[in-house]
Design a protein around this nucleic acid. Structure first.
Lengths: 81, 81
DNA sequence: GCCTAATGTTGCATTAATACTACATAGCAT
DNA sequence: ATGCTATGTAGTATTAATGCAACATTAGGC
C-alpha cells in the first residue's frame, strides 16, 4: 500500500472533520460540494491519509463554520471535544 | 513564465509573512530554518507565487508566534494591520 | 571602491495532494 | 430480497508545492 504524507514524515496533521461534519448532519458528498472538492478527498482527509492544502483547509473550515485551528492541529485531539 | 496556483485559479491565499517576519527581525533564511523548509520557499510564499500546505502554514505561524488565521486569508489584508 | 547579506530570478527534479473511475461493503429502508 | 446511500479500497493521471542550485541585483558597512 502506497502512502503519502512522506515529505513531512513525522508531522501529520490531525483533524476533526468527521465529527464536525456529523454534527451538521452532512454527508461527505455534501461537504465536498460546499468545499468544491471531490468527495473522495474528504474521505482521505478524515482517514488522515494525507493533509490538505491551506486553501482547502480554510474552505473546509468555512463550510463547517469552524476555525482552522479548531479543526486542524499538529497534535492529536482529545476525544469528546 | 510558468505559473502555479492554477488548480484553484481564482482563490489565491494572501499572507502577512513578510511583515510578521520583519517585525521579528528575521531573515528569510532564519524563518526557513525555524520552519524547517528551504529559504526560497519563504520567498515564493511572500511573493504569493503559490500557497503553502497546511502543515507549512501551521509551522510558519508557530515560528512567527501568530495564529494561522492572522497570517493567512482568502481575502486580501488591509494594510497597516 | 570592495565585500557581504538579503533578496530576486530562472530552471529542473521530485512528490504529495487532488481528481476521477470502478468496485466492494455495510446499513437501512421498503 | 432489492434498492439506495454512505463509506471504504484500489488504481491511474495531473499538477502544485517544495527542494535545490546557479546567478543577478541591491543595500550597507568598511
Amino acid at each position: 500500500m502506497l502512502f503519502p504524507m512522506s515529505r513531512n514524515p513525522e508531522e501529520p496533521v490531525y483533524n476533526r472533520i468527521e465529527e464536525a461534519r456529523a454534527a451538521l448532519g452532512l454527508s461527505r458528498q455534501d461537504l465536498a460540494d460546499k468545499a468544491g472538492v471531490h468527495y473522495q478527498t474528504i474521505g482521505y482527509l478524515e482517514r488522515e491519509e494525507y493533509s490538505p492544502s491551506l486553501v482547502l483547509a480554510i474552505r473546509i473550515a468555512k463550510s463547517l463554520n469552524q476555525e482552522v485551528s479548531d479543526l486542524f492541529s499538529l497534535s492529536p485531539f482529545k476525544k469528546g471535544k
